[in-house]
């Protein structure tokens, strides 16, 4: 298999799974005839027809709501929210319905689906096309939240998500949709949900991140290595449920932790990692935990490169904790 970009990997995984499992259906705005604004669903309408690839009216509540009815009936819907910034009209369906159906019915009505949504900044999209709002979902019991950072993991995790009995919010780092490419095996492999990946082995400091930010961390780690600092870089991949063992094992080894997210800092996902380290790894810690994050502002348009963490800011944090 040639190298695939991130968005090609999404398309590949959807197509393969739709061939394998006729319960899988795709729905959303412009996912059919147009093939999706990012081409993630390109060619699916032609191959699978309009009963399985639905160009819906523009209404996120209707898209997620319809997907709920499909899931209850036994299909495996994959609704697309064109940009995660537009999820809020469908937010009630996600947090009050999708996440609650299994629980509130005493297990009678599971509601498995994969809600795909491009997220994140760095594309000059302003705050309606740039947010990283994963923490709203990770605060909701009943949801699984996944964010891949490579084409290999995009295919493997999307497969696992479509085969999961639980609803999965699958957030795709659109900034690296085309810039990050990688090999995707032709075999029907999957990447398990809830398992982090060690990107780089190091003994000096743990760096935890996910999605587009993972690549900034990779650059920072490479520069750090030139300066004699070995970073243990962990791609969390699944935010809910977190691979807590990977986090604790890494910090037990390094004694230092940096957490990198592009979302606003206050009450962001990194706060949960920091709290877990305070509760369970305090005696391993040799320096304060540092979070590198977006600012506590709405996502700015003109100053987005100032807002977004980059390798330089990550490196500064790494050196700060190592030199503590």
């Amino acid at each position: 298999m040639p190298e695939l970009s991130m968005v090609e990997a999404v398309n590949f995984a959807l197509r393969e799974e739709m061939r394998r499992d006729e319960r899988v259906v795709v729905l959303g705005e412009d996912v059919g005839a147009l093939g999706g604004v990012f081409r993630a669903t390109d060619g699916l309408l032609e191959e699978f027809g309009e009963d399985r690839v639905l160009d819906t009216p523009l209404a996120e509540g209707g898209i997620i709501g319809s997907a709920v009815g499909m899931a209850l009936y036994g299909l495996r819907p994959v609704p697309e929210i064109q940009f995660v910034d537009f999820v809020f009209p469908g937010f009630d369906q996600i947090v009050s319905e999708v996440a609650k159906y299994r629980y509130r019915s005493g297990g009678q009505y599971p509601c498995p689906m994969v809600i795909r949504a491009p997220y994140g900044g760095g594309i000059r999209g302003g705050h309606y096309h740039s947010q990283s709002n994963e923490a709203y979902f990770t605060h909701t019991p009943g949801l699984v939240v996944v964010i891949p950072s490579t084409p290999h993991d995009t295919v493997g995790l999307l497969r696992s998500a479509m085969r999961s009995e639980d609803p999965v919010v699958f957030m795709e780092p659109k900034r690296i949709y085309r810039s990050v490419r990688g090999d995707v095996p032709e075999v029907d492999y999957s990447v398990p949900i809830g398992v982090a990946r060690r990107v780089r082995e190091g003994r000096d400091v743990s760096v935890f991140s996910y999605g587009a930010m993972l690549h900034e961390c990779g650059r920072a780690a490479a520069t750090a290595a030139e300066r004699g600092i070995e970073v243990d870089l962990i791609d969390l991949r699944t935010l809910l449920p977190l691979d807590i063992d990977a986090v604790l094992e890494s910090v037990a080894k390094t004694g230092k932790a940096v957490i990198v997210q592009e979302a606003p800092k206050f009450c962001g996902y990194g706060a949960e990692i920091a709290a877990i380290l305070a509760e369970r790894a305090l005696l391993h810690l040799e320096a304060p935990v540092v979070r590198v994050a977006g600012f506590d502002t709405p996502f700015p348009y003109a100053l987005e490169s100032t807002y977004l963490p980059d390798a330089e800011r990550v490196l500064a944090a790494v050196e700060q904790v190592v030199n503590f």
Binding site: V25, I64, A67, V68, G69, Y73
Partner: peptide, 10 residues
């Protein structure tokens, strides 16, 4: 109501 519609679409 949208869920009912989705069930019908299924």
């Amino acid at each position: 109501l949208a869920q009912a519609t989705g069930c019908g679409l299924a």
